[in-house]
Write a protein that binds this DNA or RNA. Structure first.
Lengths: 169, 169
DNA sequence: TTGGAAAGTCAACAAGGCTGACATAAAATC
DNA sequence: GATTTTATGTCAGCCTTGTTGACTTTCCAA
């Protein structure tokens, strides 16, 4: 239990690392993530889509022309899982799949106007909540928020995130 | 670049609310949550349990003697979903269900020694990652992290979270 | 005492993960 | 040119975990 006591000798600055503080952070992640997905989920439900569709649409919007393989590594699912989602999105006319010009094995993915419209609806909803949270917490808190989240990622995913982050700025 | 400029005038202070900054926050949540669940997921996989079991075990540990209904409102799933998970945990001897004394309709839930052991394994793993992230980011960042997460919750969930937070401290 | 509400259980179904096997086409290599 | 590797798509089948609907037991209040 060493961490708990505010005793003398070097330990006081680490009080934010007690099991109790960490548990609060864990529960905060759990409840916050529910809020984070709640608004898009409501929109998707009416359209008979799920979170998997949202994720695909988001990252195709982020990186137009991305290949299936690329998307797989970002989303971290199997190609069968992704394919099921992509198939419905393509059938419904939200995503277009073009054969690669240099490498004809690849399929490059783009949002159609209707896909762009859905992406807009979803991201508007999600951004509205983020914006409210950011505004309530203030810029300093936001910086800390991002720092902790980055430190929480697996190194592999952090690399992916950094790439996206730079690419989009 | 946006975050840096502390220029004069009214609008600059809100640069952290641009769509671009919000998008980064959204993607950070996505990737960080994957890391957040990765370690417990690995442990659960070997035991043929899933995240739903983890959540149940976590909150029963947090609030021993809680009722099924109570747990339902915290977890935000249907009672049928929860029931399936509870049934396997009870069959496997990790959770004990006692008929309520004052109201015999209620079942009060407790972790058995084996359930406590699993909870310990899972929370140790998850805390280790949180601790590393907290340590890397520092106490000020952690405070901001928690502020933004709380602001992101649905009001109903925030109330639940606050109750738990106080109760456990 | 009887009827409704509340807590919990059981049955069946759907979404979306997963693995494994296999097909095709194109690129890369020998 | 033949072979192997890579990128993608597809089928079949499984698991977890969400859903709704129907049901029992228990409690409470009219």
């Amino acid at each position: 239990m060493a961490e708990g006591g505010p005793g003398p000798g070097g330990g006081e600055a680490l009080l934010f690392l007690t099991d109790e503080q960490l548990r609060k952070g864990i529960e905060a992640m759990f409840f916050a993530y529910r809020g984070f997905t709640a608004d898009p989920d409501r929109i998707l439900e009416d359209l008979d889509y799920g979170r998997a569709h949202h994720r695909a649409v988001h990252f195709i919007h982020r990186s137009p022309g991305t290949t299936v393989n690329n998307l797989l590594s970002i989303l971290g699912v199997t190609k069968q899982s992704l394919n099921r989602v992509l198939r419905t999105l393509i059938e419904d006319g939200l995503v277009e799949s073009r054969v690669g010009r240099v490498d004809k094995r690849e399929r490059h993915l783009y949002l159609t106007p209707r896909g762009t419209e859905l992406e807009r609806m979803l991201s508007d909803a999600q951004r509205a909540r983020m914006r409210a949270a950011y505004r309530a917490a203030g810029p300093a808190a936001v910086q800390g928020f991002r720092q902790v989240l980055e430190a929480m990622m697996d190194p592999e995913l952090r690399r992916q995130y950094q790439t996206l982050k730079e690419g989009g700025a």
